[in-house]
Nucleic acid binder design. Sequence first.
RNA 1: GCGCCCGUAGCUCAGUUGGAUAGAGUGCUGGCCUCCGAAGCCAGAGGUCACAGGUUCGAAUCCUGUCGGGCGCGCCA
Length: 588
Amino acid sequence: MKPHLQSLLEAALARLVADGLLAPEALPDGPVPLERSRGGEHGDFASPIALGLARSARRKPRELADAIVARLPASPHVRDVQVAGPGFVNFFLDEGAVLSAVSAVLEQGAAYGRTDSGQGARVQVEFVSANPTGPLHVGHGRGAAYGAALASVLDAAGFEVQREYYVNDAGRQMHILATSVWVRYLQQRGEAMPFPANAYRGDYIRDVAAELVRVHGDALRVPAGEVTLDLPPDVDAGGDREIYIDALCERARHVLGAERYAVVHAAALGSQLDDIREDLEQFGVTFDRWFSEASLHTSGAVARAVERLRAGGHMYEREGAQWFRSTAFGDEKDRVVVRDNGEPTYFASDIAYVDDKFARGFERMIYIWGADHHGYVTRVKAACQALGHDPERIEILLVQFATLYRGGEKLQMSTRSGEFVTLRELRREVGDDAARFFYVMRRCEQHLDFDLDLAKSQSAENPVYYVQYAHARICSLFRQAAERGVALAEDARTVDLSPLVEPEARGLARTLGRLPEVVTAASLAREPHQIAFYLREVANDFHAFYNNHVFLADHPGVREARFALARATRQVIANGLALLGVGAPEEM
RNA sequence: GCGCCCGUAGCUCAGUUGGAUAGAGUGCUGGCCUCCGAAGCCAGAGGUCACAGGUUCGAAUCCUGUCGGGCGCGCCA
C-alpha cells in the first residue's frame, strides 16, 4: 500500500513540474516521504512532501499541498485525501484496502512480511566469533541473538545473506588453551605439575584432559621435571605470568614434538568449537560458514596481504617489528602487524580476513563486535582502505554488554576465576525463547539490563509470554471451534471479510498490514528490536478485539470473517517471532 | 587526557529521512469474566526529552559547548 501511495504522489509531482509550478531539480532524490499516521483524524498515511518542497517552490506549504492533492491520480484504495496542519497530505484508505492486508497475509502465509527492498544484494553478517578457548558467556549470547535476528531480517528484506563465524584458531591464546589442557592431562596421569597462573582453569579443561587420557593413555605423558626444567618463575614464585606461560607453551611444543602437540592442540580446539557450535545450535543460531583464521596463514593469505601493504608503501620496520602506517588513514597510532619474534599479530589475520571478504564479492560486510572492541574499528577500516577497498562497504556494529539482574541485584561476572555466567546457564535458567527475545528487545548500542526474574516469570509483565500468549490463544480458538463442531471454510482466502467493521478489527488489520514496512525499516536500520516492538502491538490489537467481540459468533458470515482475521494474526505473529528465533507455541 | 556509545514518565525503554497533541511496558489508582485461555482488556494520574546556545517554516532527532553515566585506549586477545 505504501509504494502505491508513493507512486500516486510521484505522479502528482510530475504533473506539478509539467504545469511549471515546480522546478524539476527540486524533486526529492529518493522515494517520496510517506509515513504511517497514528490513525484517527490524520488518516492512515501522511506525507510531509509539501512542507519539504515549499521553499524551493516558493509557495506556502498548504497552498502547495492543495496543488499536489488536485493533481493526485484517482485510486480505488483511497477514500479521501485531506490537507491538514501546516501542510500534511493525509490519505484515508478505503475500507477494503485496509482489509486487503488480511487477504495478503492469508495469501502469502509464511512468506508474508518478506520484501524485495534488498534487491538480492549480497550481504555478509559475521557475528559471535568468540575465541574457542571456553564456553560462550552471556555477552556472546547477545551478539548471537542480535546477529542471528539481523541476518533473518535482512534475508526477509530481500538481501542474500551469508552468516559467518570467524574462528580464532591460530595464535597465542590457542597455544595457551592447548597447554592448559596438557597440564591437566599430566596432573591426571599423576605428574606433579604446577598449574600456571595464566592458564585457563575452567572445569571444561579437565574434561578435555580426561578425554585425552581415555584415548591416548600415557602416550602424551612427559615427566613433570622435564617439562618445567629451567623455566622462568611463574608469578607466585616472583616471576611474570605472561613470560612463564609463553615459555611453558614453547616447552610443550618442544618436548611433545610437532605431531603429539598437534594432537593436544586439535583436541583442545575441537572440544571448544564443538561445545560452542552445539550451544549456538540449541539456541537456534546457525552459520553458513565457520571461517578458520589458521587457514589464512596456511594459504599464505596473511603473507600476501602484508606484502600488498608493503608494496603500497604502508609498512615500515621499527625495533624489529613490522608496522602498518594506519595513522595515514586516521588511526591514532600505527599498529604492529608482525612482532619482533616473527609472529604475526591477530591484526595481521584481520587484514587478510577483510581482504578475503572483499574478494568474495559481498556488496556489504557487517561485523558484529562486542563494544569492548571499538578501538579496532579504525584500524580495520584503515587496512581496508590501504588494500584499495572501499571502507564504506564494511559496517562494524558494536553490541553493548548485557548486565544480568536477579532479585533486583546486579550479578557479578568474572571471566578470570572461571565463574562467569555462561550462555548455557542462562538458557537453562530462562529458556531459549525468553533469552532470544530479551536479547533483541533493545537497540544493540544500548546497554541491556537483563532481568532474569522477569524473563523467567510466566506472567503478564513478561513481554515474550505476552506475544506468545496471543498466538496460543488463537490456536485455542481453532481447537474450540473444532471441539464444538463449528464448520469453518476450507480455504480462508475465499472468506468474505466485509463483516469486519469493528474499530478493533480495522485497527488489527491495519497493524497486520505493516509487517513488510517494519521488516524493511528494521533491515535498513539494522534494528531487529523493531520487530519485537511491532509484535507487541499486534498482540495488543488482537487481545483488544478478543476482549470486546466473540470469535465464535453465531452468524456464520461474521464468524468466518473473524476466524480469517485470527488466522492472519496468528500467521503474522509466527512470522515475526521466527525472525527473532523465538517459538510460536500452540499452547502454553 | 583522547576516542566511541548513552542521557526521554518513579523504573526499563520506543520514537522512522527533522514533522502534527512525545509513546509503550512496568509500577500506582479505578473498572471489566454466567461467554471462545484474566498469561487478557479499558480508563486515569505520571514529562523542563540532562543543561545552555545555534541551524529553520518546524528539533527528542542535526551542529557547538557544559554536566552526568558506561566502555576502550599494550609488539594482549
